[in-house]
Design a protein around this nucleic acid. Structure first.
Lengths: 197, 197, 197, 197
DNA sequence: CATGAATGAGACTTCATTCAT
DNA sequence: CATGAATGAAGTCTCATTCAT
């Protein structure tokens, strides 16, 4: 019971931290704010996390894991290349809306952080891209797609979608048009936009 | 002489600020560091800029202006839609390499800043996208491109290229392959990647 | 217990501030000095007061209140006009000695401060004078005093006594001669110093 | 000619300093402000005064000397005790109005200053009081006044008048009523305010 | 002599972290 | 375990003073 209590309090803090870090950024966020958001005392945060930096890392790691799992799950339900790509796009957009704070965590300036963490983040980013790369490679293998640099493409696709889904987006997104926008974007890539040929 | 001196010293500080803000981020950058980088005293910075925040704003504005001009200039030299888009892509990639700090400035977390500045940044970003939108609209008008949401497309293209050019990029870029990568990316969009149809 | 602790620590800081502000003046006083004087850390001061200026204001307000109360109390115990005026003079002199720092707070240059505070100070000063004005008016009403401008007189009396009691005083004051000096000064005003008429 | 030029520039700075120190106080006054007020460059101030503190001292000394001379001169023209005292009062009030900055210089917080200067200020203050003391002593000698502690009285009189003339005064003073107020105050002291005896 | 650009010591203030309760 | 009062390191900014022109 105590254990369960502990776990839930740790989670409580992470939730609060995600919220505050997202809206205020790492440096502007204050430990006291996070504690208040979590409805606990300032000192308690330090019972569960060694430092502000550690709390940030754990919050980011947890966030990324959740988002990644959600996307993977969605993709697994599709069978066609286009279906998988649209699923990826739609979920990315949805998350960018619903969990805007996670999206922001990625855009946030983290270069000041511990070198190891930065490396971890880059590696993790690479893993995320692998998901798309694999879809592409599969598509090439079954001759649905033309041969191309899957790594480069994955980054362009992910970056393109992420930008539309992100906090600086100028495209108005509602729950109703998520699907349509996802399809539109994917088709830029699949069909191309040129009328010639 | 004095005038020239003034201008160059202000510029000197902006250069140093761009360097330090880029590598360290706004909050981690210290005024003293910037002054050292510029080879001047701490107090001198305040002779040219009212505050750290003001220095940051001016640095960003100057950077954006330079980059924008460079891109516009490059595009103006091309006549075809594909040529313009590749020029945009190549210049964006080149700048992302050469002026990595400018690229970083955009990813940096600036949400904490003065509301007016944030609005200015968003508006300026919108202007940048207009450049692409116009290329696209022209292409549609002359039936080179199929009809599509130019605003959305501009954001996807710009985001896709920016990601490859940016500091988290996993695509290795050298002066030699800039042109090739730019063309490859643009062709994802123009020709599409699907073999079907 | 915590509550009592809080109150006493705030008071502790005010005491230290009164001491330091009095001997060093507002601008020369350093927050660190005040903290040291109070035997606490620099940061603790800011737990109880928003800023140095706020600390100064609260210190002055508290000091004035204490002094005013002490004077009022002393006057209330007297029945005759002369008795009240001497009580006022004696208490003012006594406080000028014992709480020299309060006396100094009044002479200090506060014109640079927040406009509202300055207004408050002037108003409060006016209130203090009212005490004397009322004594005078009562004296006139019962034909003990000749008719005169009570407001002007109050300021002359208060200024005259304050100067003798103040930090620039050239009159040597000891606990033994306080009473005598107070009476002497009051009699300048009551009897006059002229032998003619 | 050069010499004369030097003298007048030194004087120019002192005038500007008196103005600025009076309105802003020692610590809030900036050397640059004073230079601007004098219509010269910041560095030039240091050609004539070693430091800000030195400039302040010289400004105060000059101001006191001017005021003292003006008062002495006025008194010398009177023959009766009452005439001399009223002349003193009137001139003090007039100066408090016209040269409000000089009056403020005296109230200003100077305790932080160089010990020697503080001693000088106290001594000079004593000298000023001697003027009144002598009038009083003469009055006692010729049996116009009753015997009393001339030093104490001088301080009460001077403090009383100074307060009415000073920047915190609540008595409205106009060129028209200066004479009347001076007489009223002096008569508080000469005739007393009591109707009894 | 006159100037004002450059400087850096020093002050206020914030906030992550500690630790006694 | 939970807390929040206390702390002090560290950062921004001011301004008296210097000195090259």
């Amino acid at each position: 019971m105590l254990d369960k209590n502990d776990v839930s309090k740790r989670q409580l803090i992470i939730q609060a931290a995600a919220e505050i870090f997202s809206t205020r950024g790492y440096h502007t966020a204050k430990i006291e704010e996070i504690a208040q958001q979590a409805g606990i005392g300032k000192g308690t945060v330090y019972e569960y996390f060694q430092s502000k930096e550690q709390l940030f890392r754990d919050t980011v790691k947890e966030g990324i894991t959740i988002v990644d799992l959600a996307i993977q799950e969605q993709i697994a339900q599709e069978t066609t290349t286009r279906g998988k790509l649209i699923a990826f796009a739609r979920k990315t957009i949805e998350i960018g809306q619903k969990y805007r704070f996670i999206a922001k965590l990625f855009i946030m300036d983290t270069s000041f952080m511990d070198h190891d963490f930065h490396e971890w983040l880059v590696e993790r980013y690479g893993q995320s891209l692998k998901t798309i790369e694999n879809i592409i490679r599969d598509g090439i293998a079954i001759k649905q797609l033309r041969p191309l640099d899957a790594a480069c493409f994955a980054q362009v696709l992910s970056g393109g979608i992420g930008t539309v889904a992100g906090p600086l987006s100028l495209v108005e997104i509602t729950p109703q048009n998520e699907e349509r926008i996802a399809a539109e974007i994917v088709d830029y890539f699949l069909q191309g936009i040129s009328l010639e040929r």
